[in-house]
Every structure is written in C-alpha cells, then in structure tokens.
Amino acid sequence: MDIERRNNVTVTGNPRGRTVVLAHGFGCDQNMWRLTVPALADDYRVVLFDYVGSGRSDLSAFSEDRYASLDGYAQDVAEVCEALDLRDAVFVGHSVSAMIGVLAAGMAPERLGALVMVAPSPRYIDDEGYRGGFSAEDIDELLVSLESNYLGWSAAMAPVIMGNADRPELGEELKNSFCATDPDMARVFARTTFLSDSRDDLKAVTVPTLILECTQDVIAPREVGAFVHQTIPGSKLVTLDATGHCPHLSAPEATNEAITDFLARLR
C-alpha cells in the first residue's frame, strides 16, 4: 500500500534538518499547521499528513474497526514514519493527536525521539479526582449532535469563506481545511477521541516532552495540562498567554517560539 498517498503526506522544509512531524487533531487536517510550518521550515524537515478519514486522505482506506481506537490512528503515524524511514523525529500533536503521539512513540520508539503536545487531554470526561472539563452527559450530547446534525457541522462554513474578498487564497485554503472531513468518518473520530482514556499511557513516556497549554481553553482546561505535566516524567510545561484550544492559530508567534525553543535545546 502507498502510505504516503493514503495519508496525503507532505514533506517540506530543510531536507538536512531534523524531522518534525506535525499531526492535526479532530475535525481538522494538516492545513491547521499553516502558521507553524514557516517558523520551522528553515531549520527542520517538516512532515505533514492527514489521518485516514480526514482531509485529503484516501477515504477508501477507512475502516470503522481500525479507527474505533486511538491505536488505529497511532498505527497511521507509525506507518507514515516507517514509509519515510524516519529516525529520532520530533512529533508535534494537537489535542487528541498529542495522545496519539504518545501511543505511536510506544509503537516505534526508534523513530520518534521527542514529543510536543499542543493543548493535550488524555481524558475529556471528569472522573473521580480528575477534572477533564466535560461530564459524561456533555460527551453524549456532543456525539448525538454529530450524529444528527452533519448539515450544520460540515456545511456551515462555506458561506463564510465566500465573503472573504481581501484574501481569497485564505478562504480557499480554509474551505478545504474545514469542509473536507467526511461526516461519517468524523463521527467515528469524535467517538474515539472523546471516549478515550489515555491517562495510564502518559507514565510510559520516556522521551523529552514539551506540553503547551492555553490560559483559557474550554476543551482542555489548565487542570488537564497540569495533570499531563505531572504524569510524564521530566516533561516541560509552557502556559501560553492565549485563549481557545488552537494556540497555533490564535497565538502563532508565541506557540512557534515555544516549539522552536524546545527543539533547539534537544541534544
């Protein structure tokens, strides 16, 4: 199988630099990293991809069984690394992808040598002695709304994009980025993401790890950032002065600086 085509793999940046893999989160695709890539491209070889079922991946390769657990997505990462024969690469994952990176590093330890977790959450639902930010009812409602409302979720952005006369290229890019996800596959990804519990996997992380959290994030509150930091031995936590769940979009300068600073200090 042609993994690079299956996962719509893009390789850019400095071919002699250390490889940095950028992994998008739920409901997005590799275009989410468009403000990050320019900051890395001079010094690093940058690998972008779409998980199967997202963006411009080969949708025919989707299997509900495989992607019903985060391991399936981690398998995508491991296979991309193998196809490109990566060694000691740095994995940057947003949101649920941060956890997918933890699992992938366990599957292919020689290929991934460091992790950057952007707004990670190992479990979204509150539990005894743990605040994930969502109640079980919240998540049920989310899944039901995805189940019943794919008209709104996938089609809502199109008129917005049309009106962006100043920077039409941005609109085009975003339309592709935001609307390309197949609703049925997005539902599977949502279920897998929001019902996952990867807290125990964090303890197994042995590679240098940077955690980026935002001061105000309704998806991954600061308690979660603190939990991840405490659980991964030797990890570094940076709190960005940013709101929202996508600091690489809402505060790209600060996010890029934190990432490049971390990369520069690796070995």
Partner: peptide, 11 residues
C-alpha cells in the same frame, strides 16, 4: 453546547 464549544474553538 459541547459540540458548539468544540466547533467554536477549532473553527
């Protein structure tokens, strides 16, 4: 709602 929050944050 939660779905709305997620959509708000990511899109």
């Amino acid at each position: 709602t939660v779905g709305g929050k997620l959509y708000h944050e990511t899109h």
